[in-house]
Write a protein that binds this DNA or RNA. Structure first.
Length: 567
RNA sequence: UGUCGGGUCGUCUAAUGGCAGGACAGCGGCCUUUGGAGCCGCGAGUAGAGGUUCGAAUCCUCUCCCGACAGCCA
């Protein structure tokens, strides 16, 4: 009996290579981020792919490798965040952490070897001159005047480049391939550039740094990678990847490209994410509105839900945009099964039960998770004064409104049925208190509890309530494609001004007061929430809304509004 | 008309010459002590034109559309 495995074109290649014993039965992948920013949801797809393929085969391994070849953009802070994020998504990473910068000496030796073979040369052209001589997409380039230097002169110059005798940008080491190649990447690409800048791990050891095209295949070769999986934009670079490895006659992994992950209403360019952080449009890389892995974690997403998304979307070479609703479905699916239920009143209005004995209190058992009997129950304190959500009362109820209104009844979740007798307002006409009576016979689970009322609402005992701040997040951008901006405008015009709503003075059931950062709950009838790492100045906890519950009432109201002609 | 790559429901993805299926989204209904969840149902697709074949999303030809590449970024 065999269950058909979910596969994709890359897994098919891997399986075929295994069948033909191409790499002696080895499977070795790698995830190679550049430490120049935080990882985002797009990287999760790659992490899942590379670690996933490795784990699907006995003896398969995956390296986390920092592609730290550009000291101008890279920082230790990013290294640290990336390690934490990869661990969170992939689970154990077996401490297989590597750095391209550790291979700089070996790379240099190979560069010397290429010079000796007459396949690389030192070029004195500056950046502008190189660009001009490269030609265009439709016209061939022209040879550099330095292309035919002797091996000795090249070796001498390369040595002096490394020693630091020349200023930034004055010289480069280039591969001698073909200035007329229809593939621009093959027109004598640059292997080393001079950059007098300290490296976050190498310090001042180097002032020449390898470019991606030169370095990446070497890194893969050194680590014995079998399948070097990258995104589509490197497809045109594969001939170059192959050329370097062949010219050096060293171990040759196989580069395979797949389509990167895009998300609707979201921006995933690291450059733009950095801009959002640096210009203060968000509070940081882990602002819960960001699409970074750190932000999803802080917002309350589970790694499982993100993995589920990655599995659902598959792997192909087709440019695609994933609908954010898939992400929302995935986290709801997970949290519905696992999240502890709680009652929280975000926008409180006081209810006084006039027939409930003054000073009396009782503990009512409430289910922790109706989806999971084994989660058991907890006791929620009940008393004469309660808070309910302002939204759950209407003085003039619209059609099909099942909640509280004057003279009408509702059930209080896990408690009694109450009837609203009197509405008390302040001078400005705002409702400040509801006077109600409760029916003692209708205690939840009791003998007369079966009486039908249309609605059930959540509540919190005023005497026992815990105060908290609650942050409601909405999508950061208003447009499905945030890059679609009017002529001359940037993506920033599409920022959603209401992406964050801060609610203070929210009333929570007491159990929530002792929740720890990262704890996730379903606030019944409202949504899923997660305890933030920060607290308010007064010490109150802060809850981040992960995602709303699917709200059928919102849809009914919306339709009602559409059907009612504007006054 | 430089090179490379890609086009299947709104979105993502199966079908690898043999009934175009699934998921998300949408819509309708049932149920409900969360207007949650759950259950049932509906609509929706092979870019176009030719060809090969008993049979084509799949193979061939042409056309159209989309993406990547002219950093000393990755």
């Amino acid at each position: 009996m065999s269950v058909p495995e979910k596969t994709d074109f890359i897994r098919d290649i891997v399986a075929e290579d295994l069948r033909t014993n191409k790499y002696g039965g080895r499977i070795h992948t790698r995830f190679p981020p550049e430490p120049n920013g935080y990882l985002h949801i797009g990287h999760a797809k790659s992490i899942n792919l590379n670690y996933g393929i490795a784990r699907e085969h006995a003896g398969g391994i995956c390296n986390l490798r920092f592609d730290d070849t550009n000291p101008e953009k890279e920082e230790q802070e990013y290294v640290d965040s990336i390690i934490a994020d990869v661990r969170w998504i992939a689970g154990t990473i077996d401490e297989r952490i590597y750095y391209a910068s550790d291979y700089f000496e070996q790379m240099y030796e190979w560069a010397v070897a290429l010079v000796q073979k007459g396949k690389a040369y030192v070029c004195d052209l500056n950046a502008d001159e190189i660009r001009e001589s490269r030609g265009t997409l439709t016209e061939p380039g022209t040879d550099s005047p330095y292309r035919n230097r002797s091996v000795e002169e090249n070796l001498n110059l390369l040595t002096r480049m490394r020693k630091g005798e020349f200023p930034d940008g004055s010289r480069t080491l280039r591969a001698k391939i073909d200035m007329a190649s229809p593939n621009i990447n093959l027109r004598d690409p640059i292997m080393y550039r001079i950059v007098h800048e300290d490296h976050h791990r190498q310090g001042s050891a180097w002032c020449i740094y390898p470019t991606y095209d030169w370095a990446h295949g070497l890194e893969d070769s050194i680590e014995g990678i079998t399948h070097s999986i990258c995104t589509l934009e490197f497809e045109n670079h594969r001939p170059l990847y192959d050329w370097f490895l062949d010219a050096l006659e060293i171990y040759h992994p196989q580069q395979i490209e797949f389509a990167r992950f895009n998300l609707s209403y979201t921006i995933l360019s690291k450059r733009r994410l950095r801009q959002l952080v640096q210009e203060g449009h968000v509070s940081g890389w882990d602002d819960p509105r960001m699409p970074t892995i750190a932000a999803y974690r802080r917002r309350g997403y589970t790694p499982e839900s993100i993995r589920t998304v990655c599995e659902k979307i598959g792997v192909s070479k087709k440019d695609s945009i994933i609908d954010v609703s898939l992400l929302e479905w995935s986290i709801r699916e997970d949290l519905n099964k696992h999240a502890q239920r709680a009652m929280a009143v975000l926008n409180p209005v006081k209810v006084v039960l006039t027939n409930y004995p003054e000073g009396q209190t009782e503990e009512l058992p409430a289910m922790n998770n109706p989806e999971d009997e084994s989660a058991g129950t907890r006791n929620v304190p009940f008393g004469r004064e309660l808070y309910i959500d302002r939204d759950d009362f209407r003085e003039v109820p619209p059609p099909k409104y099942h909640r509280l209104s004057p003279g009408k009844e509702v059930r209080l979740r896990a408690a009694y049925i109450i009837r609203c007798d009197q509405v008390i307002k302040d001078a400005s006409g705002e409702v400040i208190e509801l006077r109600c009576t409760y029916d003692p016979e209708t205690r939840s689970g009791g003998p007369a509890a079966n009486r039908k009322v249309k609605g059930t609402i959540h509540w919190v005992s005023a005497q026992h309530a815990v105060d908290a701040e609650v942050r409601l997040y909405d999508r950061l951008f208003l447009k499905e494609d945030p890059n679609e901006a009017p002529e001359g405008k940037s993506f920033l015009v599409n920022l959603n001004p209401d992406s964050l709503q801060v609610l203070t003075g929210c009333k929570l059931e007491p159990m929530l007061g002792s929740a720890a950062p990262g704890d996730r709950f379903q606030f019944e009838r409202v949504g899923y929430f997660c305890v933030d790492t920060a607290r308010t100045a007064s010490g109150a906890p802060i809850f981040n809304r992960t995602v709303t519950l699917k709200d059928a009432w919102a849809k009914i109201e919306q339709r009602g509004r559409e059907l009612t002609p504007a006054p």
